[in-house]
């Protein structure tokens, strides 16, 4: 098991704007850019990037054995064809962003929406960093696959949390409905060829 921490200097603005539904047809960005800049400064100031990952051997036959749990997911099985190992990771951008969102949800819907999008873009970028580390360390070959994609059930989150000891290692918690808090958190599987 490995733990990573990080700190990013900027957030991918295009990604955040995409989450906010900004299309080419938008005429005038003046005014809103100042709000986005301000929110970005706040989000970057409270970021607390952490990740935990580990390597598992996988096997097939009577479903897919992921090394930490079994699953019947056809989509994941297809996705991992040609792989005999996986790297499993959980990553979070921290609870500070949730606090900002909770705050703006009460006093400024515009800033709430912008902070939400920036937080999502930040955790995505952090996942890219973690993914790059997995590629460098293990030669990971696939993109990320998460619970809720295709037929991979959300309930697999419980096994992931137990396998990586996620709450203890990086402070992310899981609700009864398998939603993570801090909300700007991701778990994912990456395939590796021997």
């Amino acid at each position: 098991m490995n733990v990573l921490t990080g700190n990013l200097k900027a957030i991918d603005r295009r990604e955040a704007l995409r989450y906010l539904g900004c299309s080419r047809s938008v005429e005038d960005m003046s005014g809103v850019e100042g709000v986005i800049d301000g929110c970005e400064r706040e989000v970057l100031a409270v970021q607390n990037l952490k990740a935990v990952y580990s390597l598992y051997d996988i096997s097939r036959g009577d479903g897919l054995n992921l090394g930490f749990a079994k699953t019947d997911s056809r989509d994941l099985e297809k996705y991992l064809s040609g792989c005999n190992k996986i790297a499993l990771f959980a990553a979070t951008a921290g609870a500070g962003i949730d606090r900002l969102i909770a705050k703006y949800n009460r006093i400024s819907p515009a800033r709430a929406a912008v902070t939400q999008a920036l937080g999502a873009a930040l955790v995505e970028e952090w996942c890219n960093t973690v993914h790059a580390q997995l590629t460098a360390q293990y030669g990971a070959i696939t993109a990320r696959f998460s619970c809720g994609y295709g037929d991979l059930p959300l309930t697999l989150q419980r096994d992931i949390f137990a396998a990586l000891d996620v709450t203890k290692k990086i402070g992310v918690t899981l609700s009864d409905d398998c939603f993570m808090t801090p909300t700007k958190s991701v778990t994912a599987i990456v395939g590796i060829k021997a």
Binding site: E27, G31, I36
Partner: peptide, 18 residues
């Protein structure tokens, strides 16, 4: 109307609402 025509987007709609 601008929001519906996509000539402005969500944060702008909300800033106007505020």
């Amino acid at each position: 109307q601008k929001f519906e025509n996509k000539t402005l987007f969500l944060p702008q709609l909300l800033m106007s609402a505020e």
